[in-house]
Simulated scan of single mutants.
Amino acid sequence: MRHFQNKNFRVLVLTLIIILVISVMSLGNNSVVSTALNGAFKGLFQLSASATASADSVDVQTLKEENEKLRQENAELREQLADYYDTKAENERLRKYYDLKKENPSYKIQPANIIRRDTNDDFYSFTLDIGSADGVGVNNAVITENGLVGWVYKVDAVTCKVKTILSPDTKAGAVDKQSGDSGIVSGNTYLCDQNLTALNTLAEDNKVKEGDMVVTSGTGGVYPGNLIIGKVKEIKTDSYDNSRYAVIEPYEDIRKITAAAVITDFEKKSEESK
C-alpha cells in the first residue's frame, strides 16, 4: 500500500492508463482485444483512484495528528511561560528581602505565601503558610518587598494569622522621614477600603506635608526601625477631637498581595528580651 502513496508510482499508473486508452482507440472494432483492454483499463483506473484516496486519507490523518501535537506543545509552552513569570517575580521578591537582610544583618526573614483571607475581617487580615516551627511568634512584623504590611497576632505550628496596617488594632510607632514628626500608625473603617491608613497623634505644630515618606520608628521593640510604611497622601483634622493626622498610602496594595515575609527576629528585640 505504501507504493500507492508514492507520487512516481501514481504517475506511472496514469501513464499506463493513457497508453491503454490510445491502444483501445487504435484497435477500433476488435471486440475481443477491446474488451480485454477495457477490463484492464477499468482495473487500473480503480487501482489509481483507490491509491489516491488512500494517500489523501493518510495525509488528512497526518495533518490532524500534527495539529494535535502542536496544540499540546503550545499549551506546554504557555504553562512554562507562566511558570517563568512566577519564578521571575518570586526571585525579585527574594532579592529584595536579601538586600534588606544585607543592610540589617540581625534580621531573620521567613518568606511565605498567603493561603487564605479572613472574609469576616474588614481590614484584609490573612493567613500565611509558616508558623512556630519556622520561628514565627506573636507580634512579629510582616513585610513585602515594598514595606510593612502588618503583624502576627496568632500562631500555630505551621501557619500564622496577620492583622494589616489598615486595621485599628495596629499601633505602630512611626516617623516622617522628611520632617522628623512622629506618631502612631493605625487604620480605621473610613480609610481601609481605599488601601489607606493614618498617622495619628501628631503634634499641633507638625511639619508633615503631602508626599513625605513614613517609616517605623523602632520604639517599643515590636517593629524594627526604618521599615517603609508609605507616603503622606493628605493632612486632615479629626472632627471628634480636632487632632491632626496624616492619611498614609502604603507602597503596597495590601488588599491584593499574595505573598509576604515575617521578620522573626532582629537585634533590638533580642537585646530587650535579654
Rank of each mutant, 00 (worst) to 15 (best):
A133I: 14
Y240V: 12
Q5G: 09
E210K: 10
A157Q: 14
R95V: 06
S186K: 08
I248H: 03
P224K: 01
E65C: 07
I19L: 13
M25I: 15
D56I: 05
V247A: 07
E103S: 10
I184W: 02
R71V: 04
K171H: 09
Y190N: 15
D122T: 03
K154D: 03
K64D: 08
G180N: 07
S125G: 08
R117I: 00
K101D: 00
V33W: 11
I184H: 02
V208E: 00
A157W: 13
V21Q: 12
E79L: 14
E249Y: 01
S125Y: 02
I143N: 00
K96Y: 02
E272A: 08
P224L: 04
T144L: 01
V158A: 10
G28T: 07
E234D: 09
L37W: 05
L227H: 00
P111T: 03
K108L: 01
T87S: 10
D212S: 13
K177R: 06
R116Q: 10
L81G: 04
N38P: 12
R95L: 11
L227A: 02
K42V: 15
G211H: 13
D176G: 06
Q194D: 14
L14T: 15
G183Y: 06
T35V: 09
N30F: 06
T52K: 11
A51G: 14
K256V: 02
G137C: 04
N242F: 15
G225D: 05
A157P: 02
L100T: 10
F126L: 08
V208S: 05
Y107N: 02
E76L: 13
D169S: 12
N91W: 05
T219W: 04
N6T: 15
A260P: 00
S270P: 03
Y84P: 03
T189K: 11
N91I: 03
F4C: 11
T62D: 13
G225P: 05
A246D: 04
A259G: 02
K231W: 04
T159K: 07
